[in-house]
């Protein structure tokens, strides 16, 4: 049985379609990533899967429970870390966990032991009696991770768990999640707009943009699925008008994009293409200003499937606050 089974799920807010017929399945024990810019529909999707929003059409089965018809069963099976920091600042770390243990109906005799184990797992035992308001952003996120696991859920949803954290805290959260995943029999679905986060954490990634699922596979296969094993970013001084066409004729070149003096070349053999590129530039007396050769990244994958760079998409992102639509 799949831990999560989503079929043609749709969410509309009035005339706006936030999620447009997305289907995917997540195996038990898998870490599954939804990758896309803000406004791509990731949070709407995760809110439907966690019973916070009713789907307009389609079905979603979580741990064998339908999100619409058996929402209580879904809620008992899942742990959720929302995008916003939602811990009670006035309460201590331990109190936050205790209240949620009670909300989930964890038996009294198990509560203390579970909370102690979780605080140990997220390395917050020594901060247990401190008010959450006194903790850093990374520590607050760890409180929320522990809080989401306090009832021992089978499936764990994390909506952009490292957004707003500094690089060190982000790595800390990744390590924490990897460790918890190894210790517990958990299926994890997370959303992110960080390529490196998806690449490092996820067994499989679904690329989402404008409410559509653009691609779904393991990070390795996604990278292999696009043209070129290497990406060469190069800039010239005074490149002739037909320079792009000349670059396309270099050995192992699969695709060239760019204009004026700046180009991106996808190549099946980075070293051979680079050598030929330098020779061609010298022969044409076109000076090379800068050159970098790198392996294909998820950013290239996103460009390939979404038709634009993720960093551009982040800047042009659609609004994520749909509260104005909730009342429709």
């Amino acid at each position: 049985m799949n831990a999560i089974d989503v079929k043609n799920i749709v969410k509309k807010f009035g005339d706006f379609t936030a999620v447009n017929g997305v289907s995917f399945a997540v195996d038990e024990g898998e870490i599954f990533g939804l990758l896309g810019p803000n406004g791509a529909g990731k949070s709407t999707l995760i809110r439907m899967l966690t019973t916070l929003l009713p789907p307009t059409a389609g079905t979603a089965i979580i741990n064998g429970f339908d999100v619409v018809k058996q929402s209580d069963g879904v809620r008992r099976s899942i742990g959720v870390i929302p995008q916003a920091m939602t811990s009670d600042l006035e309460l201590s770390v331990e109190e936050n966990l205790l209240i949620f243990a009670k909300l989930y109906g964890v038996p009294r005799d198990k509560r203390r032991k579970l909370i102690a184990e979780l605080l140990d797992a997220v390395e917050l035992s020594q901060w247990a009696d401190k008010q959450v308001r006194n903790l850093s952003g990374g520590m607050r996120r760890r409180v929320e991770i522990a809080r989401g696991l306090v009832h021992e859920p089978r499936i764990f949803f994390l909506d952009e768990p490292t957004t707003g954290l500094d690089p060190v805290s982000r790595v800390g959260v990744w390590e924490m999640l990897t460790k918890i995943k190894q210790q517990r029999d958990l299926t994890i679905l997370l959303t992110t707009h960080y390529m490196d986060e998806a690449d490092r954490l996820c067994d499989r990634i679904a690329i989402v943009d404008h409410g559509d699922l653009k691609a779904l596979d393991t990070p390795l296969k996604l990278k292999a699925s696009i043209p070129g094993k290497n990406v060469i970013d190069v800039s010239f001084q005074g490149a002739p008008p037909d320079w792009l066409q000349q670059l396309e004729r270099l050995p192992a070149v699969e695709r060239v994009t760019g204009q004026d003096n700046i180009f991106r070349i996808s190549s099946g053999n980075g070293p051979a293409t680079t050598t030929a590129l330098m020779d061609a530039a010298a022969a044409a007396k076109v000076p090379v200003q800068s050159l970098s050769v790198q392996s294909t990244t998820l950013d290239d994958v996103f460009v390939h499937y979404a038709g634009r760079a993720l960093r551009d998409a982040l800047q042009d992102a659609a609004p994520t606050d749909f509260s104005f639509m909730r009342n429709r």
């Binding site: 966690t50 019973t51 916070l52 209580d72 809620r75 008992r76 899942i78 959720v80 929302p82 995008q83 916003a84 939602t86 009670d88 949620f100 909300l103 989930y104 109906g105 809080r147």
Partner: peptide, 13 residues
Amino acid sequence: ARGLHEGYLVTPI
């Protein structure tokens, strides 16, 4: 407004 209620709404309450 701070999103705290999302925390409650995903529980079986």
